[in-house]
Amino acid sequence: MLAALGLVDTGARTIEDIFTGPSQWNPNGRVFGGQVLAQSVVAASRTVARDRPIHSTHGYFLRAGDVEVPITFAVDRIHDGRSFSTRRTQAYQRGVPIFSMIASFQTVDDGLDHQAAMPEGLPDPESLPDERELLGALPHPMARFWSARPFDLRHVEAPVYVGPAESRSAQQAVWLRARGRLPEDPVVHRAALAYASDYTILEPVLRRHGAAWSTPGLRAASLDHAMWWHRPARVDEWLVYVQDSPSATGGRGLSHGRIFTREGVLVASVAQEGMLRVPAEG
């Protein structure tokens, strides 16, 4: 993950700032959406003063990316005000955009402060199985890929990797943290959180309809992704991602997520709509 976040400044200075970045290997050959999102966050952050952290982003996944082709990131410095900065990042492969994002940055400021409460009664992450234990022994290449991800993920409810959930609920919670210590750079932690936010966000839709990632003929793809960073947090320490799906229709499913620290501090909120097409029974 950190290698993918290490973008190279090409030195080009037209009306945009240009960076390039690699992709992580994926057995299906497609770029992981969380990766290109995180890289876009890093690219945009490189063009903003360090005292203005990113606080929101809205992005669209336009085309499937190819893991064999480097990604070019073009950042447009749309606006710099006294407190806020706005950037647009376009990610390109072979001359066409695969992802488009607008992000907002703000100087750290005081103001009104409240937050939603973390759900009560969640089990500690140490009491839950590591997904490496669940997936590492399975022969399927995607299972081996998932088990080698740079984040430790621990589902509170049984995961829906290889089979449907027992209960058709549109809610779930997942503990997560990066495997290994991350640098102190707050940009890295916010980008890494964006990366991880794309892992499981559509699973509440699958749960609600008795589907799993292994469902034969399932077609799934992220369409858009919105994220708001509320408060700083270390992503190499345990966070819990509480998710629900309010709607699914037209081959699309919408999910919301809230990310809390172990102590109950609300760190970020997420919304994503994805294409989810499951073959009709019979």
Results as ranks from 00 to 15, higher is better:
Thr10Pro: 06
Leu176Ile: 10
Glu120Ser: 14
Ile259Thr: 00
Ser85His: 05
Pro183Leu: 10
His230Met: 08
Phe260Pro: 00
Ser45Gln: 13
Arg190Gly: 00
Asp51Pro: 06
Phe84Met: 11
Leu135Ile: 10
Glu157Pro: 03
Gly21Ala: 14
Asp198Leu: 04
Leu193Ile: 10
Ile71Asp: 00
Arg82Tyr: 08
Arg63Lys: 14
Pro186Trp: 05
Ala170Met: 05
Arg262Ile: 08
His58Ala: 04
Leu176Phe: 15
Ser85Arg: 01
Gln35Val: 03
Arg258Thr: 01
Arg13Cys: 06
Thr10Tyr: 09
Pro129Val: 08
Gly121Trp: 07
Asp185Asn: 14
Ser40Phe: 06
Trp228Arg: 02
Asp80Gln: 11
Val174Tyr: 02
Glu281Lys: 13
Gln93Cys: 04
Thr86Gln: 11
Ser83His: 12
Asp236Cys: 06
Ser255Lys: 01
Asp80Gly: 03
Ala280Arg: 13
Tyr60Leu: 06
Ser45Thr: 13
His55Ala: 03
Ser255Leu: 02
Arg82His: 14
Ala170Cys: 08
Leu62Ile: 15
Ser197Gly: 08
Asp224Ala: 02
Pro186Ala: 09
Ser214Lys: 05
Glu237Lys: 09
Leu223Arg: 01
Val187Cys: 11
Gln90Glu: 13
Glu157Ser: 12
Ala103His: 07
Ser269Trp: 06
Pro204Ser: 07
Val108Ala: 12
Ala64Thr: 13
Val278Ile: 15
Ser255Gly: 14
Val96Ser: 15
Ser269Gln: 10
Trp238Ile: 04
Thr261Gln: 07
Arg13Ile: 09
Gly251Ile: 11
Arg82Met: 08
Gly21Phe: 03
Ala64Tyr: 13
